[in-house]
């Protein structure tokens, strides 16, 4: 992979635009090193958290002697620990993501995920990648070094979307090491048994993490601009049908609207951030939008 090819999905202007952005989801991270995110553990740090009545087993070094002097009661001072965040980026690499041919959903989703990785790595978080491909699944373990971005971009660029969608196995915590508390971002068109994917994301939320679904739908899918008699083909199943597009448009749009509404409702119920991706906007704009959504995630779960 050449240097230019690698950064095609994350061009300079995108990196420049994303350079000042931070992602700080309001969750307790399970990081292994220090970072900017509140840790799920209290420990040695400068930021006071609260007082707690002494109990057997507490470190006597934490006894607040001033409180003891004033109240004649033994309290222990606790401090908020800060650590880094582990983020898993899951990219749907099925054949349906390879549409439309000029600007594929895969490429658009990959650009957004690369942008997110760029932001996360810059703030010291660890970023891992799962390519959900039926025959050649790829898992890149999370790392926090800046050079890891290139590796992620290489993986995203090299992948050739094909085959059926296999989101269920890609989001399996046992397979991908997603059991740790952190951030999971899935970029997919959800043209599969999407309930399995939403359930898996919901499990992440249940473990105290943050899950984001980037629902990537092309402009063709959202507007169905076709007219006349056309052969519609399914890249995943190979089925095709000669259909009158004009007569089909109304029914298709109604089905799509219902489909989106169902996925959005399921995500809402599972506490998953649902972010519909508008492919007419540049990917880095979509990244900023996702960051804003996740930052405000305590107040609302969907955008």
């Amino acid at each position: 992979m050449t240097e230019e090819g690698r950064w095609e999905i994350l061009p300079d202007e995108a990196r420049e635009a994303l350079g000042r952005l931070r992602l700080r989801p309001k969750v307790l991270a399970d990081g292994r090193v220090g970072g900017i995110h509140a840790s799920s553990h209290t420990g040695q740090s400068l930021e006071f958290a609260d007082l707690k009545g002494y109990a057997f087993g507490d470190d006597p070094r934490g006894i607040d002697w001033k409180v003891l002097a004033r109240t004649d009661k033994v309290y222990v001072r606790r401090y908020q620990d800060e650590t880094n965040l582990t983020a898993w980026l899951v990219q749907d690499a099925s054949a349906s993501m390879n549409q439309p041919s000029n600007e594929t959903k895969y490429r658009h989703g990959a650009s957004i995920l690369a942008g997110l990785a760029y932001v996360l790595l810059r703030q010291g978080d660890e970023v891992g990648l799962v390519l959900a491909h039926a025959r050649h699944p790829r898992i890149c373990p999370p790392r926090g070094v800046p050079s890891h971005l290139g590796e992620l971009c290489n993986l995203l660029t090299d992948a050739r979307p094909s085959g059926p969608t296999v989101l269920g196995s890609a989001l399996d915590p046992g397979v991908a090491g997603l059991s740790r508390r952190g951030l999971v971002v899935l970029a997919s068109d959800m043209l599969t048994d999407w309930q399995v994917a939403v359930d898996a994301l919901g499990a992440t939320v249940a473990r105290g993490g943050v899950a984001v679904l980037l629902h990537v739908l092309s402009a063709d899918e959202r507007t169905f601009p076709f007219t006349g008699t056309m052969v519609f083909r399914s890249a995943e199943t190979g089925e095709s049908a000669l259909l009158d597009a004009r007569g089909l448009r109304k029914r298709f749009l109604a089905a799509l609207e219902a489909f989106v509404a169902q996925v959005r409702a399921a995500c809402h119920d599972a506490g998953v951030f649902y972010h519909p991706v508008d492919m007419t906007l540049p990917p880095h704009v979509q990244v900023a939008s996702v960051l804003r959504a996740v930052d405000g995630g305590r107040r609302r779960r969907s955008i």
Partner: peptide, 25 residues
């Protein structure tokens, strides 16, 4: 003739949402 000359569009959304299931097809 049209089947041979008609433009082919890969649109899994259509197949998944409208034509999903053998009965519909």
């Amino acid at each position: 003739y049209l089947r041979g000359r008609a433009p082919t569009v890969a649109l899994d959304a259509l197949m998944h949402l409208v034509l999903a299931g053998g009965a519909t097809a």
